[in-house]
Design a binder for these strands. Structure first.
Lengths: 335, 335
DNA sequence: TCCAATAAGGTAAACGTTTACGTTCATGCT
DNA sequence: AGCATGAACGTAAACGTTTACCTTATTGGA
């Protein structure tokens, strides 16, 4: 197989302790033996065994990331940031795809725990009681990303969905709109659902715009089809609508598509603002005005927090990342 | 810290060997001790240490995946499939993001090698000589995904780009088009660039359609901006064009967008066919006709091949996956 | 009754590192 | 000269498993 530290030691006529010290840049050897050992390492192409190291050091330099789904650029931008931060810290990341499935999630947590990952980032999904109990028992450090836990005190990084939704609605109001609708995702979703709805409603209320049940339609998810159906329903229950806040970019793009087929011109007849700033937002016709979450930075920040936590042992503070309205061409001033 | 096999053994009044045998479902113990040990395991919440196992078994049940970039659904669909197959086989996947950077790639290979991953999937990128030498030296099993190596004999799974491009162009021809243009990606790219161009050209030639340098514009990449610029250039050098083959869906969507701004109606005045069948292809206006690569299945297949290789030790055959034309609404028959 | 075979279980080495502790030797100081 | 000190190493235990090999008791058959 491959060479071990013993082979190096033997060939260089030193003990394995010396080789180890040299590898770890500790003291306790002369310059002469150092270059001799280094040369032997080079000759043999010796590679230290991270498994053996992990066994004794109790650090695997590996973290686990749990995602509900993979095939959305929302999630991959987060992953992108995590991977970047991990790379800088010399760690690797194991991705786990839970599919919102509790059993699968628990199985993955078990797996990660057995593999002795240094920590876990739990992203875009509600942290259920059972998960928390498991994590607590096996005391693996954890950071919540793009989600938060109302019941348990766990550090998280996300944007303030309430505020962001408030901003989006306010933006529409500033543009002169009064008949403003919303297509929301799952309203049972305490993270991405409810806060956005409430932020939207608060903005209208603060602007003294009358608000009834007709203003918002509730869909099950945040996907493209939810958007196309959503717009049709909204039009039915709120025909005078002139501006729309979509709870996700996919919903917004769906609405855009439905509007096109219904012959409704965006933004001339209907203004649309999305949420997320996925890369598809800039590719739509017209390019989508949306509220942007700094996804990659969020991933980086979460991973950074985790590594700091691993070093210091101190629980870091949660971080709320700034959102931002990206003005493109799907919203028009109403005069 | 957490409990070890010793703790279990002591509490159950057996030796660690017996516990190990029970954990691995081997023989050599009575039913009575088995349930006793299992109960102790339950009580303590004992979790076997995969690191220690890996050290002695020389199997980490972890594979590495190298991607040039993460933020494209092309890549994440592949990853999705890989992760799925890995989950079924009880393995985890470490993702590495190379950014087409040779140094970074080598560093990642080194890392994966030190972590003693069981195997590597190298995706969507050219396998350079240096990578190959490294892999060969540390003899880690490897599968190429959505790429192939002309020089080295390494099993791969991909679609036949030449054929797929040929099909796309033929489809346009069948629809009655004669003035057919192409926006290609990087023509130096021996995997996704050149073969698609040649497939396109062959289809036109076989149909006896005259073909000159004006028919195709060459861009640096496969992205949205390449598509919008690409269409403008194509229109300039080939004004009579009625149908367009885009070397990627992002290019196609870019062209769609440019066409919209130029007031060119798709598909009435210009037909467009894409390549990849990303999820955005179904969200565009109009929904994009495209040639589909079964990305998720390709990922699954690649991982499956890798696991079979690990079991049997035999190099598997390369697999060419079928492509398929997904008819949506961006191509119109010309009468 | 005795022996071989089998079931049930234990002992200890091995995997490839790190590291606490011990040893040797040269050096400098009094 | 004698001694403390520090540099430059070596030895061996430890990390948590798996497994080859050994031991003991039981059973069935001749």
């Amino acid at each position: 197989m491959s060479y071990t530290i013993k082979d190096v030691a033997k060939k260089a006529n030193v003990s394995i302790a010396t080789v180890s010290r040299i590898l770890n840049a500790q003291s306790g050897y002369s310059e002469k033996t150092k270059i001799r050992v280094l040369q032997v390492i080079e000759e043999l192409g010796y590679q230290p065994n991270a498994i053996a190291r992990g066994l004794i050091n109790k650090r695997t330099h590996t973290i686990g990331v749990l995602f509900p789904k993979l095939s959305s650029s929302l999630v991959t931008d987060l992953l992108d940031g995590i991977e970047k931060a991990a790379g800088i810290s010399g760690s690797s990341v194991i991705v786990c795809h839970t599919e919102y499935n509790g059993e699968k999630t628990l199985k993955y947590l078990q797996l990660l725990s057995e593999k002795r990952v240094d920590g876990i980032i739990f992203a875009s999904e509600v942290l259920r009681e059972e998960y928390y109990q498991f994590l607590k028992k096996s005391n693996i450090p954890i950071i919540l990303l793009s989600t938060e836990s109302p019941s348990f005190s766990i550090p998280h990084v996300k944007v303030n969905d309430f505020h962001a939704a408030y901003s989006a609605a306010s933006y529409l109001i500033e543009k002169g709109h009064k008949n403003i609708g919303m297509i929301s995702g799952n309203k049972e979703d305490m993270i991405a659902g409810k806060p956005r709805i409430e932020g939207f409603q608060k903005a209208l209320a603060d602007a003294h715009i009358p608000l009834s049940e007709e203003n918002v339609v509730y869909k099950k998810g945040f996907s493209f089809p939810d958007g196309v159906e959503g717009l049709k329903e909204l039009l039915k229950q709120f025909p005078s609508v002139t501006a729309l806040f979509a709870a996700s970019d996919e919903i917004a793009i769906g609405a855009l598509s439905a509007a096109y087929h219904l012959g409704i011109k965006v933004p001339d007849e209907l203004s649309i603002i999305g949420y997320d700033n996925l890369n598809i937002a800039s590719m739509s016709i017209p390019p989508l005005t949306t509220v942007s979450q700094p996804l990659k930075e969020m991933g980086e920040t979460a991973a950074g927090m985790l590594f700091k936590l691993l070093e210091t042992g101190k629980a870091p503070n949660s971080i709320l990342m700034p959102h931002q309205i990206i003005e493109r061409f799907s919203v028009k001033e109403r005069i």
